[in-house]
Design a protein around this nucleic acid. Structure first.
Lengths: 170, 170
DNA sequence: GTCTATAATCGGATAGAC
DNA sequence: GTCTATCCGATTATAGAC
């Protein structure tokens, strides 16, 4: 059974992604979590603290250990998660992206650190640093597309295949 | 001399990028443009209309004709603008990115359309559609990095150089 | 730990003078 | 075209009961 704190952050993510930052009021988030505004404020003493709760989750889940496989597996998983963006980490990340510019919390710093941490799970598998950066940027590009709900391109799979070819030439 | 409407949208962009969406109140934007709240509301009848003013500018500037050069030149310019993000189009685009999720305006649709329009200036120079999509995704990745104020990687130049090599092999 | 008031502030929008 | 004054709803946060 999940704690009230977790349910509240879950609700915050949902509201941010589905209804936007303006809808992320204390009352509305509380309602989504099945508690009252007062109940929410017991767990998070202010709106700022609530947002920091989300950033804390972002930091935590970016440190989740990778299923540690071979290079192809790691890279495929990295890019495919950026593409479909339906796992826990992607959800938290996309929610945090909608918080960029919120007052009192340093969202960019948390996002930079988290995405860097997350990419550290693939980097060891790639010898060439330029190839590594290329793959990271493509992952970031896929997240930007998810942020603006852009449809996937029919060539995305081929792009991933080509990148895989670059780590295991010929 | 710029019109009042233009100065107001200029101020909106500045506030969105430097202080975030929450600071983009009618009064604060009006102050940045050197007019009163009432003055702003004469030009844009509501906050929604103000935001649509920004999206309109995004649509317009994404149709600016490219300086039409060769493939290398077009692609270099495309990626370098995404990287430094200090031109008019990038400023408008980064401001609009902070508006994602705002009520009453379809920011994702405007952003998708604009970024697609913008990329149309390079696509004709690239024969292979997979390479084209790869370059587009890298450009998007660079914009995401600009959105979260992430420092440029020392390998970004090499990434661009490699992509240029893919359109003119050997 | 969770709830129901209530206080205090802020933001969007209207009306009307100039 | 631009301003000031004002209204009204929404939102954050506090106080205190249960």
């Amino acid at each position: 059974m999940s704690t009230a704190r977790e349910r509240i952050v879950d609700a915050l993510e949902r509201v941010l992604i589905e209804e936007g930052p303006a809808a992320a009021t204390l009352e509305h988030v509380a309602e989504g979590a099945g508690v009252s505004k007062g109940g929410l404020l017991y767990h998070f003493g202010s709106k700022e603290a609530l947002f920091e709760g989300l950033l804390g989750r972002l930091t935590d889940s970016s440190q989740d250990p990778a299923p540690a496989t071979d290079a192809r597996g790691a890279i495929t998983e990295y890019l495919r998660l950026s593409m479909v963006a339906d796992d826990a980490f992607s959800t938290t990340l996309l929610a945090a992206l909608r918080l960029v510019g919120a007052p009192g919390v340093d969202v960019p710093a948390a996002l930079s650190a988290a995405s860097e941490q997350w990419f550290e799970q693939v980097r060891p598998h790639i010898a060439d640093p330029v190839t590594a950066r290329l793959i990271q940027l493509v992952g970031d590009g896929l997240y930007l597309n998810a942020l603006i709900s852009a449809p996937a391109s029919p060539h995305d799979d081929a792009v991933i295949a080509r990148l895989l070819g670059e780590v295991e030439p010929h």
